[in-house]
Simulated scan of single mutants.
Amino acid sequence: MLDPDSGLSLTIARIVQRLKGSSLHSQLERQARVSLHKPEIKLESLKEDIKDFLKTSGWEKKLQNAVYSELNVFPSPCHPAAPPEHMKEPLAYMRKAQGSWEKRILKSLNSMCTELSIPLAQKRPVSEQKELLNKWNEMGTDEPDLSLFRPVYAPKDFLEVLMNLRNPNYENGEQPSFRNHLGLIQVPLKVKDIPELKEDFSELGLNIGQLGIDDSAQVPPEFFENEHVRVGQKVLAEQDSAAAQQYVRQGCPTALRADLWALILNISNQPEDILYYEQLKSNVIQHDLLVDSLIYKDVKLTASNDDYYFVFEDYLYQVLLCFSRDTSVLEHFTYSSATPPKSYIRDPHLPWL
């Protein structure tokens, strides 16, 4: 076991290392240099004066939000001697099952490519690039024939894999017992008990107001809804990610939803973010992936036929296609036991590659 002090030090070191390579770090450095020209910054108290400047100008809050965001996605620190695969998934039989499932998925993808005589990835012809760019905001109007593209796996296949998971170190006995009928998935994992769940979800208690329930037609808005919206506006004014996450546990007002989730996820709409999106979009325009057809078919079969989501069909295509090109997603695999599948762009001028 890793003692708490060592674990905290390791977590701090990792977060500092990650933030050093972020745009926030360069922005903080730039603001610190700008502050040197201000008359209130004194040489004899340079460090403290710069800290005060960053605090009053709102940059300290941005740094706090960034740290909080990292803490939410960062895995719990393991013992330094633990192997990498143990840090990602400590249970060997889980890693084995996941590896088998990934091989099955890749085999299905490769079989589809062979049957349809299409590569996993290839560069689009110039004419196709222009066509896709012109209809970028109305991709839902396109009706390509995707009948030959089959699902990579059926939901029942995945359920079957989960049902067959067994811990080799856990002996349940040959005799049937009450535990055999508790569910289809018989994996002994530690879960929270009822008191712990009550504590984690205390906001769902009967004595706590909840948006969507206490703002119904039978309850006057001044009793809960108006006050909840007012508090939400105050949270947004403070720009505190932790406070925003705690606030939405009692419901998120529709009018504040976009701003609150942007604050919780610590995302912004800065020029560099727009440029990054345009780069991803350019990758979609230039390269055709097999996954594109699977995404297109999935959206057509689900969101397009849904009364609530059909209006977002074009946005779903744009987001999912760009997301499939986002290499920053690969960072997830540093602490996830999953293995990212790889494909190579085939150059039509070099057919032997």
Rank of each mutant, 00 (worst) to 15 (best):
L289E: 00
K123G: 08
P253A: 12
E85M: 06
Y93K: 09
Y277G: 06
L54C: 04
G232F: 12
P188H: 01
K61L: 10
F333C: 00
T339P: 05
L132I: 07
Q122C: 08
Y170D: 15
H86Q: 15
P221T: 02
E222N: 11
T141L: 09
S282L: 12
Q17T: 08
Y344P: 00
V219M: 02
V319E: 01
K342M: 09
I295L: 13
R346F: 01
S9R: 15
T254G: 09
L211D: 01
R325S: 03
N169Q: 08
R257A: 11
T114S: 14
K342Y: 04
E227S: 11
N137W: 12
F149D: 01
V161F: 04
L260G: 03
A243Y: 00
S282V: 00
V248W: 04
K51I: 14
I50H: 07
L204H: 00
S69N: 12
V329W: 05
Y296G: 01
Q122F: 02
Q245M: 10
E171D: 15
K47Y: 10
Q129V: 05
D259I: 05
S337E: 04
L236M: 06
D306I: 01
P119A: 06
P75N: 01
L321C: 02
R325P: 05
G205R: 12
P151G: 01
V16W: 03
A154K: 15
L162V: 00
L316D: 00
K135N: 10
P119E: 03
E196Y: 04
S35D: 03
D347V: 04
E102W: 00
L294W: 13
L236S: 01
P271I: 04
D5C: 07
G183E: 05
D347I: 03
G251H: 07
T56E: 13
H25K: 02
D306G: 07
Q239K: 13
I274S: 14
F224H: 08
D3E: 13
S9Q: 15
Q64A: 10
L182K: 05
S23T: 07
A338V: 05
Y276Q: 11
K42E: 13
T327H: 12
M139V: 08
Y276S: 13
L350K: 07
Q210K: 11
